[in-house]
Design a protein around this nucleic acid. Structure first.
Lengths: 211, 211, 211, 211
DNA sequence: AATGAATGAGGTTTCATTCAT
DNA sequence: GATGAATGAAACCTCATTCAT
């Protein structure tokens, strides 16, 4: 089966969509939401602007799609990594490594999520925090499995807050890593686990008994 | 006659400056850098645009001034709170409470710092990360006092990374708090300390011996 | 149907470009660079401003394009006229007539060149003096042919200065002509030749022997 | 008699005026009409803007005053130099040298006149051409004296045109000189005289007989 | 005689978005 | 399915000019 020349002329809709998303991801990462222009995206894609509007409706929707896609990819990778271990600490460690590795591969795309020029815009903050929350949920799930219990109604907010705090720590650490790429992700993960694991275990115990 | 009617007409320069900064802080917090417009600021201040330009030179400089001002206020408050305690854990706790309290008072202004639309813009990332780094340095200092030692050359990056991670945890936790204002800042501080204190003590010990 | 209604609506790119250049030439001539506004150009062209920016990038580039275009047209005309004569004096005369005729046709455009509001602006002085210099070079060339020699290193600056002076005389004379259009260009040319030809011949002889 | 400190505080009206004119001359020469701002003039003069408006009414009037003043100074110098010689050629030579020397001293001010950013603006073209015309009149006068006759009605326009052309040559030559300041003004004057004197004498004779 | 504070109008430029083909 | 051409709205910024003191 030959590969058609997709750079010019008619292209199946799905292929165009994927190609555009890929380029948009790059562009948003390079420039941020506001500074990225539809004109440039069109130029890079070798396509006229109406094509983009036909596919995604608006710049905002296009951005949302990019963010969602990246968030899902991240969650998938972390979840998969976690699933391959059984010891609780190892699971968290594996997840962390997967998280940092994802950044290594997709740094550009990730930047869009948490350090993007427009994270604060109410329209997009939603998307970003949705992803953060997914990471947090994943961790809650993890800990619930570990302790074999679910925190009661009272303990819930605390757990939620803590996991979000941890997600924040990951994000901030990633920014630091950006400037110290020589540190291997495994070491990064170990550092972070050494920092929070003791507290996490205690928290887990505490919430478990309180239930 | 003591106080002129400052709502319209002629106002002393210093007063105008302060008023404009205050309103700009609000506006940037609401909209982010890009989406905030000088036109709107002028409208809110009941002033024509040239006034703003006369005072701050450009939108960028105005923003920088806002950010710097907020960052300094935050650092001052935290430093002051820390100074009033002597036990290491209590010091961190006091600093944390001060940090969260600052948000309660100045939430709008704070948002500009870490969740702003333009954190990613290199021009501003500098400002924001400088503040984060100041918090981090403050904490490193704190820990050094506690352990009575300074980490060696090898331990330094790790300590730096960890404090930045913790700063990230604070920031993220603040966003969560934004949606759960019923939790008192003392409780928030206790939660976070319970989470990281064990790890911090160990880290401190470890870096101390390794030096 | 051959010719679409180009006064409104969609027009092929090349046509729009030409139309805009024409109108810009007029506008710059009427008002000078600074006083001419893109708004007015757009209004006159019955087009929105972004169209202009799409075609020429910036006001400065638009201006440069106008100037260059006019300068080239002038040089072409003069060169062509000169080429059609063989006697040195006749050649200069023919060139002069062509020069003045060009003004008659393109007065507006010409004004942009040498009496423009912004000759002094370094960005444009370059363009204008380049054209003046081209005229001067043309004349130097002409005289070299006449005398069959090239002035030596010492004589060069003098010749250059003199031809530029003559170019200035042309320009100034053109302004005068603007207010005395009843004088035919041939007469104008004769006047000027009577004035400078004797001196030119002597100069030519002098520089030739000195070499 | 002591000199009061005129840089601050109250200053007699005439002194202020003179001081402002001097600085305005400089500023216009440096920046051109449009780019020169009243704000900067006020700053340089250490005076508030209303003072300037009180003295000159408007930017336009201020500029006109500058130009007129410079033009008069130039005409005075040239006239004076001419008066000190008796042989016609020497008189023209002396006038030319005075002209070029004026530039050497007052280059900045001169630029405002003929190469200014706004020479073309109808409002100012008037001023500039008035000066050019004065130079031209001066020369006509000179030649009339030489030949002892005044050209008849028919010869007048031609003489006028020629003298204006010559004035243009001077201006253009001055620009060239700007880039070759090593040439002494006497040499410049000789060059120009060698070029136009033969033609001028013939013209003079011709117009004299024709009358 | 002089000023600090303010303004209105206008400038260039950029962008997301949409017809008409 | 795709495009070339066009637009409306809004952004930042500057300047000559004038009150009110």
């Amino acid at each position: 089966m030959l590969v058609a020349n997709y750079r010019t002329g008619r292209v199946p809709r799905a292929v165009r969509s994927a190609q555009l998303l890929e380029l948009a991801d790059q562009l948003f990462a390079e420039r941020g939401f506001h500074a990225a222009s539809m004109d440039e995206l069109a130029r890079r894609a070798g396509v006229s602007k109406p094509v983009i509007y036909d596919h995604f409706g608006s710049k905002e929707q296009l951005f949302a799609t990019c963010v969602r896609r990246t968030g899902e990819a991240l969650a998938d990778r972390v979840a998969k990594a976690v699933r391959e271990e059984s010891d609780p600490r190892e699971r968290l460690r594996a997840g962390s490594i997967a998280y940092f590795r994802f950044l290594q591969d997709q740094l550009r795309a990730w930047i869009v999520l948490f350090d993007g020029e427009d994270a604060r815009d109410t329209r997009f903050a939603t998307e970003a925090s949705r992803i953060r929350r997914r990471q947090s949920d994943l961790m809650i799930h993890l800990m619930a499995e570990t302790s074999g219990t679910t925190p009661d109604h009272e303990g819930r907010p605390r757990l939620e807050a803590m996991t979000l705090a941890i997600a924040g720590a990951y994000e901030s650490l990633s920014l630091w890593w950006h400037e110290h790429p020589e540190v291997p992700p495994e070491e990064l993960a170990d550092w972070l686990l050494d920092l929070i694991w003791p507290g996490l275990e205690q928290l887990n115990a505490q919430l478990a008994t309180s239930s």
